[in-house]
Simulated scan of single mutants.
Amino acid sequence: MPHLTAPDGTKIAYEDHLPPRAPDRTILLLHGLAGDRAEWSDLIPRLLADGHRVVAYDARAHGASTRRPADVTRAAHVADGVALVEELGLAPVTLVGQSLGGHTALLVAAAQPHLVRSLILIEAGPAGRNPELPSLIASWLADWHPADRAVMVACVAELATDDHWREWSAVRCPTLLVEGANGTMGPTEPSDMLARRRPDDDVRHVVVPDAGHDVHLDRPEQLYEAIAGYLNDLNAGR
């Protein structure tokens, strides 16, 4: 398993899948909190079959990456995403992120727009300032080892006090918002996201029926269809 080593010594495990022909598009997959790159096992072969290069990685503190890094701030996660894009020569890249991974993708697109071709956010947005979030995560991970649970809670600590609407408004690349019909996004978050981007930014919103927060696990085929249709439209200039 190849690794990228961040400046702080954190090792980021990734896998790089190449299609049999020159890729139409390069896609970087970012999983959510307490997940890993294996969650994309259904989507990766579908995207490869469509002719895309697909890279998936384990976020710091997850999977085969360094499990207890010293820094798990939002800035550190963003720096890892940027480093992968630059080190592997992925730009201009399409970022596909679910939940916290989608939040990271959003911040990468805002901070380094020249690296990002398009953005696909799955059950992810800029809303934050939820003081109850750390305790909710701790409760959700009650059966985890205390140290690992503490790291996961630390990964979302900033979202208890901060939101990122300013960064969302700064994103200029085409964007697809994917919401699970039974997901956890705020009731007005998708519509607020649409309202805060310019009309010519090409931001679209789809709702996947019978899917919860983990759309990629609950309804993988429907998620693929939404992503493939969107990318086909972009390639056709629609």
Rank of each mutant, 00 (worst) to 15 (best):
A157L: 10
V208Y: 07
V203Y: 01
G186I: 06
P174Q: 06
L141R: 12
W144H: 11
E167F: 11
T188L: 11
R198H: 09
A160Q: 01
D202E: 06
P174C: 01
H145R: 11
P190A: 06
R219S: 03
V151A: 08
L141Y: 14
Q222T: 06
M193C: 15
A150W: 02
P146C: 11
S139Y: 06
M193Y: 13
H216A: 03
P134N: 00
W144V: 01
L176W: 04
R219P: 05
D192F: 04
T184N: 13
D210Y: 08
A211P: 08
S169L: 05
S191I: 10
E167I: 10
N182W: 08
L194E: 08
P146I: 02
T175N: 10
R204F: 02
H145S: 13
P174E: 02
S169G: 15
L194I: 15
R172W: 01
T161Q: 04
S139I: 01
S139M: 10
D201L: 04
L217N: 05
L177V: 08
A157W: 01
D202L: 05
M185A: 15
A211E: 08
A138T: 09
R204K: 09
V153N: 05
V206K: 05
A142E: 15
M152V: 03
A138I: 10
V207F: 05
C173M: 14
D143A: 14
V178Q: 07
V171T: 11
V151G: 03
D210W: 07
I137D: 03
T161N: 00
T175E: 07
L136M: 07
E158H: 06
L136E: 12
I137S: 04
R172S: 14
L217C: 00
V207A: 08
D202P: 00
V215K: 00
E167R: 12
G180I: 12
A147R: 03
T161K: 00
P190Y: 02
G186R: 13
